[in-house]
């Protein structure tokens, strides 16, 4: 029994991840309740989606899964599928833009967050990262960067680089999927048009197919670090790499497809709403 429990304990405890997940989950829950009370209720599905995202992110970073991710290429790819795609995607479906402002204590918002948010460096950085050209480049670029064999080698050996890798994948994905799934109405500041979102989602697909296929179809082992430090269990390096390639290739691209479908649905329903005659207020 105790041996089962230790799989649920962090392999390498990270206060930052714990804090991130507790804050992300806690503030959202608080906000969700206050939304209800203030008469602007957010449904159960966004709640479930958001919390599932947070829990998934925590599980892949702070359980025995993390050990496996360090010692098996395809599980590492699965970890990044959650960090870079699935987890943030589910979180952004939870309408955090609506809920979190209710969750964060107002005094903290007024004293810290608002001034920070409106400061020039933050505005500039945000504008850069959420730029319609930079965002997809960064989203795909990070996948490529951490999969460069030399970079990957050092990231897997150095605990701090490993942390940096996982955080960069997670934080970039939160920004990226926020940009794509932004639920705010038309003409909200910094909001990207639906057409542009679909173009971005389409653009990020081919590079992911290419790198996934490159791994899945390679005749040699590309990532020697697992050969050096040892895989979690005996499996041929090529089989490991082939599964890793498929994980990078297929589910990652499916996320784009689902993204496009969601954006299309929203686009159509918004068009329908705007074409209806304005409701008469009595």
């Amino acid at each position: 029994m105790t041996s089962d429990i230790h799989y649920l304990l962090p392999w390498e405890f990270s206060p930052a991840v714990l804090l991130f997940c507790l804050l992300a989950g806690g503030l959202y829950l608080r906000g969700w309740r206050r939304c209800r009370r203030s008469g602007q209720p957010v449904g159960y599905w966004p709640l479930v989606s958001y919390l599932t995202g947070v829990v998934l992110i925590y599980l892949v970073m702070q359980t025995g899964f993390d050990y496996l991710a360090q010692h098996m290429l395809w599980i590492h790819r699965l970890q990044h599928l959650v960090l870079h795609h699935l987890g943030p995607f589910l979180m952004m479906l939870g309408l955090p833009g609506t809920v979190l402002p209710y969750g964060v204590p107002q005094r903290f918002t007024a004293a810290v967050l608002a001034p920070l948010w409106h400061s020039a460096p933050v505005r500039l950085l945000y504008a850069l990262l959420q730029n319609a050209l930079v965002a997809p480049l960064l989203f795909v670029g990070l996948i490529y960067f951490w999969l460069l064999p030399d970079i990957h080698f050092t990231a897997m050996l150095s605990a701090s680089r490993y942390q940096l890798m996982n955080w960069s994948m997670l934080l970039d994905a939160l920004l990226f999927w926020w940009l794509i799934l932004d639920p705010r109405p038309r003409h909200a500041a910094g909001r990207l048009g639906y057409g542009a979102r679909i173009v971005i989602l389409t653009l990020v697909v081919p590079p992911q197919i290419i790198i996934g296929a490159h791994m899945a179809l390679a005749k040699d082992s590309l990532y020697s670090v697992y050969n050096v430090c040892g895989r979690a269990w005996p499996i041929s390096p090529l089989v490991d790499q082939q599964i890793a390639g498929l994980v990078t290739w297929i589910p990652a691209c499916m996320m784009s497809v689902i993204g496009v479908l969601l954006v299309l649905r929203r686009w159509i329903s918004e068009n329908r709403e705007s074409s209806l005659p304005a409701p008469v207020v009595s």
Binding site: Y226, N227, G230, P234
Partner: peptide
């Protein structure tokens, strides 16, 4: 074999 990184 050392091919899977683990000596076995």
């Amino acid at each position: 074999s050392e091919q899977s990184g683990v000596a076995r």
